[in-house]
Simulated scan of single mutants.
Amino acid sequence: MPERHAPSPEVEEPIVFIIDDDLSMRESLSDLFQSMRFDSQAFESTAAFLAGADLERSGCILLDIRLPGINGLDFQAQLDRMGNRMPVIFMTGYGDIPMTVRAMKAGAIDFLTKPFKEQDMLDAVASALKQDAERRSRTAQNTAVIALAETLTPREREVMDAVVKGLMNKQIAFDLGISEVTVKLHRGNVMRKMAARSVADLVRKAELLGPGKDPPAS
């Protein structure tokens, strides 16, 4: 069973997930985070973590390298395959350069060798939580823009793409074989539906759509 510490308030704060088979380490870290008002949840294995952790919650993972069953590095790869992008901080008493390189190349935030200083751990966690918050903010923005773009008609999307490329209304009308008045009408609809304050804002939002994120034609 997972060990719960520092219960979350009604609006959930970011959480620090601890995965370590050493009970004393789990308790020590949980006490540290509780003293700093960080919510935390500790697990003795990766299996227990997958069974009991809320992977949709904002936070980070403190992951011991040497665990029963799958090791920490392989579990990091498993999380990536699952689509989980929560930042990972590795802990180990047996760290070496190849392990560190592999972990960092796979996207780990930090690699701390036991025994580590409390401040080093707190700094690493603060950095990881900040990174996760920024990632989630970008994802939320992208999702919102995609939802707006899905309200455009195919013609409006063509007009938006042309505007983003810097084409004038007259050029857009010629390229699409429609009147300039119709282009202006579609352009106004695009600005309204995309909640764009200016052409520059529309360009920024179009860039957020990115390759492969065009809304389906309807």
Rank of each mutant, 00 (worst) to 15 (best):
I15N: 02
A106C: 01
N142F: 09
I172F: 08
V199Y: 06
D54Y: 04
V145R: 02
L29H: 08
Q131T: 09
E27P: 00
V101G: 05
A133P: 01
P87G: 14
S30W: 03
D64C: 12
A106I: 03
S45A: 08
H5F: 14
A128Y: 06
D64E: 13
A51V: 08
L112W: 10
F111Q: 07
E12D: 06
F116D: 04
V88M: 04
R26I: 11
L112H: 07
E118K: 12
V11Y: 04
E27C: 10
A77W: 01
R197T: 15
I146E: 02
G93S: 12
A217K: 15
T139M: 15
P216W: 08
L67A: 10
I19G: 00
V183K: 09
Q78R: 04
L29M: 15
V163I: 15
A51I: 04
T46C: 09
I15C: 10
L122W: 05
V164R: 02
R192N: 07
L63A: 09
R157Q: 13
G210H: 12
I89L: 13
I18V: 14
P215Y: 07
H186T: 05
A51P: 00
M1F: 11
K114V: 11
G69D: 03
F38S: 06
F49L: 04
L148G: 03
L50F: 06
L129A: 09
R155T: 15
S24F: 13
E207I: 09
P216C: 02
L176R: 13
I146W: 02
A162D: 04
M121N: 06
L209W: 04
Q41T: 09
D201F: 11
G212V: 13
M82P: 00
V183A: 10
F33N: 05
R187E: 00
D54V: 00
S24Y: 07
I89H: 07
K130Q: 13
E27A: 13
A77K: 06
D22G: 00
L209C: 05
G188P: 00
A144C: 02
I97H: 06
R157N: 12
K105R: 12
K105V: 01
F116H: 09
V163R: 12
V181K: 14
P7I: 08
L167Q: 11
E3R: 13
D214G: 15
F111V: 10
L62W: 01
A144M: 10
E180W: 04
R4K: 14
K114G: 10
A51S: 15
L23Q: 14
H186G: 01
Q171C: 01
D214K: 15
F38M: 10
E56F: 02
A200F: 03
L185S: 09
Q131Y: 03
I18K: 00
R135L: 13
S8K: 05
E12N: 03
L176S: 08
T100G: 12
E10A: 14
S218M: 06
I18Q: 04
D161M: 10
S127G: 08
T46D: 00
N142C: 10
E27L: 13
P211L: 15
I70L: 12
Y94F: 13
L63K: 04
M121I: 15
A51R: 13
E10L: 14
H5C: 13
A206L: 05
R57H: 08
E158F: 11
D110K: 13
A126S: 15
S28Y: 08
R138T: 10
H186S: 03
K130L: 08
L202Q: 03
P154S: 12
